[in-house]
Design a protein around this nucleic acid. Sequence first.
RNA 1: CGGAGCGUGGCGCAGUCCGGUUAGCGCACUAGACUGGGGGUCUAGGGGCCGCCGGUUCAAAUCCGGCCGCUCCGACCA
Length: 476
Amino acid sequence: MKEKITKRSTDFSRWYTDVILQAELADYSPVKGCMVIRPNGYAVWEKMQSILDRMFKETGHQNAYFPLFIPESFLKKEADHVEGFAPECAVVTYGGGKKLDENLYVRPTSETIMYAMYAKWIHSYRDLPLLINQWANVVRWELRTRLFLRTTEFLWQEGHTAHATYDEAEEETLKILEIYTEFYEKYMAVPVLRGLKTESEKFAGALRTYCVEAMMGDKKALQGGTSHNLGQNFSKVFDVKFQTREGKIDYVWQTSWGVSTRLIGALVMVHGDDNGLCLPPKMASNQAVVIPIWREEDEKPSVLEVANRLVRNLNKKVSVKLDDREHYTPGWKFYEWELKGIPLRIELGPKDIEKESVLFARRDTRDKFQVSWDELSYKTEQVLEEIQKNLFNRALKFREDNTFTIDDYNEFKERNNVEGGFFSVHWCGSPSCEEKIQKETKATIRLIPFEQQTKQGKCIYCNAASEHRVIIAKAY
RNA sequence: CGGAGCGUGGCGCAGUCCGGUUAGCGCACUAGACUGGGGGUCUAGGGGCCGCCGGUUCAAAUCCGGCCGCUCCGACCA
């Protein structure tokens, strides 16, 4: 018997770690703050990559790869950028046994090195837009790490585009936010809020940062992806210039955007339960597993024969695995696959063969029901779709049930403290109110949501006039 | 860096206060038999510089000192 997973309600944070370790998504590495992504976890990442990669390419982006090392001088060119990243960088000072003439920074993000190249490649408006994405690892020397959510090294994609006009850059920034939203909601079955980051939360060096934000199973917020309109901040310091159609010289307008292996953490925290991981069908490398069952030795050949046939058939439409390991009992396998989050379990034994049916067991609801062979293919697809929808709806309802519109500061403080959740409050826009709220409540302004009825109000902290509501929550 | 906790077969732990001969348990692992519809049973096995270094002692997993590592909670962050 495997060790029990800590109950989610007992200790969310331990539950999270337990699920990841036991479902074999990742393991702690010998290097502090780093993790090893195990095959189960990496399979999820590959799934995410393939979907996002397709979406990026469909919108005209190309992949490329830039170096891991960045010359110190590059990183220091953009003032806000240095300030934001320098403290959390790993720096290489020796190479080949000799002290380097110039220190090399292990990339915390690749703006600087990429834009140094862009300056070389872009000359004319005809070279624009330049739409590049890279899949890479980056390093940020974090003080406190958590599997998938914050590790010293992590995997991500970073898109970096250059445009001829501000409007095009802004359009790109928002287009990417739409891609992220679609990915979260349609594939990960995780509902997100879209909006703008405040000045203090925006990317170091950006004009403004848009984000998607999701509610985890403990009601805390997770920043799920960011898309930055960089304006001309970087092009000016890296001298990325182009000649316009009119013959004038201008600096390019840039964007950058990314999502990371943190997505996997979100998947765990939104859909997982006391039995372990629960993967939305579109995120599972195997959507279903067939468990053959027999009592007598002479039943085995016929069960396996039928099982193989059904799996072959199903695999035309979905990805199904046959678990015919003999040294594990069916019961053991049930627990194992639930822990690992496979969306649908299909049991097939002598009783089913007699009835020409199988037994379905849904991971999300844990419902079980009989399905006849002639309906198998269709039912499988249908049930998987239902699971996908149900997971999304469940997560959406959870977020809605735990999002509160509040106008009284004391009430907000109290409820934030006791029950947690997302709080929709008026904010005047002043950084000082923002900071005070954070200090006093440990909650931060997650975003200024796009979707809201623009009603005037009064700042929840200082009572000054406010143009919009913001979402405040405790966050990862 | 501050606070808390933990280092004992692969994993989870007991033993440590109060030193004493072969260091124990559960799970996992190996072999075999019976089994198989929610973590099966039995039998027989293998596997340990008790985190590291030093000290006290006739004797150290156990006491003392130092170091190292990890996890959790706070200050920075996708």
